[in-house]
Every structure is written in C-alpha cells, then in structure tokens.
Amino acid sequence: MAGIPGWEDRVRELVQAELEGLVDEVRTDALGNLIARRKGKGPRVMVAAHMDEIGFYVRHVDAKGFLRVQNVGGFDTRNLFARQVTVHTAGGDLPGLMNPAGKPIHISTPEERNKIPTVADFFVDVGLSAEEVKARVKVGDPVTLRQEGMRLGKFFTGKAMDDRASVFVLLEALRLLKGKKLACDLYAVFTTQEEVGLRGALTSAYGVEPEVGIALDVTLAVDLPDLLSHHYVTEAGKGVAIKVMDSSAISDRGLVRQFVELAEKKKIPYQMEVLPLGGTDAGAMQRSRAGVPSLTLSIPTRYVHTVTEAVHTDDLEATAALLTAYLQGK
C-alpha cells in the first residue's frame, strides 16, 4: 500500500472501509485527514495516527529517460542503494530501480567508493526508452519504495510500519471498543503529511478542538549489536513506550503520570521514552488553538525509515491495550 505525503488516498480508502460499523461519523477534511467520531460522554479526545510514508516525487526526466527525485521525509541514504521502487503515474504504476549515479565498484577509486551519496545523487531506471518514459512519467509523480511485508519470528517487518503499525493499533482499539461504553467523546483521526511537518494533525486538531491529544507513532528500538544500552531509546518486545519528550513536543506530565499509573494498574508492559530527535502528531495537537494537553504512545520499532522496519507483536498488543483502557476510563 503506497501513500507518500499528499498522496494518502489509497491508504485512506482502505482505512475508511475498515471503519464500517465501528464509529458514528466519518468525514474527510481539506488536507485529506480521515476523521472518525465515536460519540461518548466526557472530554473530547483526539487520537491521531498518520497514514503517510516517506517517499519521493519525480523532479526531472533526463534525455535518456532516467528519473531524478525529490525526497519527502527523511532518509539515511546508506539504506537506498539498489532498491526497487514504484513510480505512480496517471496511466498506472511502473516498477523501477533506484541507485546512486556514479561508477560501479569495479572501476571506482577508494575515495569514490567511500563517498556517501545525497538524495540528489540517486536516479530511477524504469527500463523503458526515453520516449516512452517521457510519455508516461511526469514531474510530480510519486515514487515509493517496494518491499514485501512478512512475519519474522514475533515481529512484523516491511516498509511504512511508520506509521501503518499505529493505524492498525487505532483500528484495533476501535474494534476492541465496539459496543462498549467510552469515558470520552472520541475522535480517531488518520492524518496526512506527518512526515513533512505534522501538517494534517495541525489542521485536523484545529477543527476537532480536542481537550486531550494522543498521538500514536513508532519510535526507535535500537537494542542492537554494538550499541550501548543508553542508546536504545526503547527495546523491542518490552511494551508500549510512553513518551516523555522528543524534538517536537514535551508530553503533558499529568497525562504521562496518568498513563503510567494505568499501565501499572492493568499490568500492561510499558517503558519510558526520551527521543533526542524526531517528532509526532502530538507536537501539532499540543500547539493547536490555545493549546492541548498531549502525549504520544509509541510502538518500539527497529530499523526506522528503512524498508525493513520491524515491530514486535507484544508491543502492538500493549499499545492497543493501554489506549483502550484509557478511552474507557478504566
């Protein structure tokens, strides 16, 4: 499923179909956010999970039919070598290959081999003649990375777990809450353009006017070889992460305390998160109108912003369990 910022339509259609029978109202706003309301008595709570994924736009088609791209979202270019991609054109999807321009290893110097390319160095080859490429591909067409999702032990792995894992958790929470009484008036918002500045959450929060904001997103699980424990941020399989802060927001300390106490009461595994760099939709909700008490529940994820993002099934379950317990006021 593809959906870079500004092109979340396919994801939105799938989510809207899954919402059937789970909510009382569904609408789409001007930025493409899908806003689903489950009516209840209590404070107006907005729970946000973003639908978009990092990707690219075509910015140039050269004389030989190779495509140059502009990234939308942050990439570590060390993870972009020799990747399969999809170019989404008006006439249908085209498979392609992404590589950095320059000499192959067999004829390059040691200095050239050690250079880390920038996104501007990469091109896409769709295997067609220049004439056919120019007839089918236009500047502004989206490009997404290709990767088959799969089970890996107790993990799910694939591209765009950031933030489709949280989209799943929010849908799962709504399924768990079906027919049950809420302690709030719930707005489940599937947001757009998070990866380019939390844009969808900003406009949807302005419209919803929540009294409490909860973002669902992934966070770094770097419990990996050759890293010291103080680099971990979170550990996979150790439970939902209750975020204290990141570079977009400092979580409301009252909400942090409330979620910690709830997790301990319900015996839901949790861990505390301090993320040095990165942000979530909580940063936009927090600054909406006159301000909204907000925090993020994070799903620990290995290999973030690659096509092998991996989330542990226990962490998915813990995140859904803590969210539903809060929304029920239990």
Rank of each mutant, 00 (worst) to 15 (best):
R253E: 13
K265A: 09
V256A: 02
V233D: 08
A236Y: 01
H231V: 10
L262S: 06
Y232W: 15
A249W: 06
E235T: 13
T234L: 11
V240S: 01
I242E: 04
I242V: 11
V233E: 14
R253M: 13
A236R: 00
E261C: 03
M245R: 10
M272E: 12
K265L: 07
E264S: 09
E273K: 07
D252S: 15
M245P: 00
L227I: 09
K267C: 04
M272C: 08
Q271G: 09
Q271V: 06
L262T: 10
I242W: 03
D252W: 09
I250F: 15
T234A: 13
S247L: 00
I242H: 03
K267A: 09
E261N: 12
G237W: 00
M272T: 12
M245N: 07
V260M: 11
V240G: 01
E261P: 03
H231G: 13
K267E: 12
L262N: 07
M245C: 07
S247N: 00
A249H: 14
V260D: 01
F259A: 02
V240C: 06
L255Q: 07
F259W: 06
V240F: 03
S251K: 04
D252V: 08
V260N: 04
K267I: 03
E235P: 04
V256F: 04
V260F: 04
Q258N: 08
A263H: 00
P269Y: 08
Q271D: 09
H231L: 13
I250N: 12
T234K: 09
V244P: 05
R257D: 05
Y270K: 03
Y270I: 02
L227C: 10
I268Q: 06
I242R: 02
V274L: 14
L255N: 06
S247W: 00
